[in-house]
Amino acid sequence: MSQNDPMMNNPYMGGGAPTPQYTPYQQPQYYPAPSSKWNAMSIAGFVCSFFFSLIGLVLSIIGYSQTKKTGERGGDFAIAGIIISAVSIALSVLACILVFVLFGTVFTAAVLQ
């Protein structure tokens, strides 16, 4: 009998049990453990975002990109620093616009009278 004979793979016809097809064993993928080291740039950006918004924004963005590349801790601090700095800069710009409009209105009213 040849190996391609259908009777050979039929257990009821005396050919024995069919040979099971196994997939090769795959090694489990291990991911590196998160680093316990903190990223100093992201922490510095977070702290600076309260006092020096522009510097805090730059440091937080750099720190966030570093945490993504190296797997260090501190990515949450960097995101918080980015948000705090952006909101602070936006409020500062709005306050400057408001002050200029207010003084322009007061100055124009004073000159016209």
Rank of each mutant, 00 (worst) to 15 (best):
W38H: 09
S49A: 06
G45A: 08
I43H: 15
Q29F: 11
Y22W: 09
Q27R: 14
S49D: 01
A33I: 14
W38V: 11
S42W: 10
P32A: 13
P28S: 08
P24V: 07
Q27F: 12
T23N: 10
P24S: 06
Y22H: 05
S35N: 09
Y25H: 00
Y31T: 14
S35R: 07
S35P: 01
S49W: 07
W38I: 14
A44W: 06
Y22L: 07
N39K: 10
S35I: 02
Q27L: 15
Q26S: 10
S36K: 12
Y31L: 15
T23Q: 14
S36R: 15
Q26P: 03
S42A: 15
P28G: 00
F46Y: 15
P34S: 09
P34G: 00
G45H: 03
N39L: 08
I43T: 10
V47Y: 05
Y30D: 00
C48Q: 06
P34F: 05
W38C: 04
G45E: 02
A33V: 15
Q27G: 02
S42E: 05
F51L: 04
F50Q: 15
N39F: 03
P28L: 08
K37P: 00
F50S: 08
S42N: 06
I43S: 13
P28M: 12
M41C: 09
Y30S: 02
A44R: 12
A40F: 04
Y31C: 01
A40M: 10
S42H: 09
Y25R: 05
Q27V: 10
F50K: 15
A33N: 14
P34D: 03
Q26E: 12
V47T: 02
M41Q: 12
T23D: 04
F46S: 01
Q26K: 13
I43R: 15
I43D: 15
Y25F: 03
Y31V: 14
T23I: 12
P28R: 11
Q29D: 01
T23H: 14
W38Q: 10
P32N: 09
Q27P: 01
S35V: 06
C48I: 00
Q29Y: 10
P34T: 10
Q27H: 12
P24E: 03
S35A: 05
F50T: 08
S49G: 10
A44F: 04
Q26C: 06
Y22I: 05
Y22K: 05
F50I: 11
F51M: 04
Y31Q: 13
S49Y: 07
F46K: 13
A44D: 11
V47F: 02
Y22G: 00
G45D: 04
W38S: 02
Q29C: 00
N39E: 03
I43E: 15
W38K: 04
W38D: 04
P34K: 13
S42T: 07
F51K: 07
Y30C: 00
Q27M: 13
T23K: 14
C48K: 06
Y30R: 04
P24I: 05
Q29V: 07
A33W: 14
Q29T: 04
G45N: 00
A44Y: 02
G45F: 11
A40C: 02
Y30H: 07
S35Q: 02
Y31D: 08
P32T: 02
P28W: 08
N39V: 03
A40P: 03
A40K: 11
Q27S: 10
P34Q: 11
A40Q: 13
M41G: 00
P32H: 08
F50W: 14
P28D: 09
K37I: 13
Y22S: 00
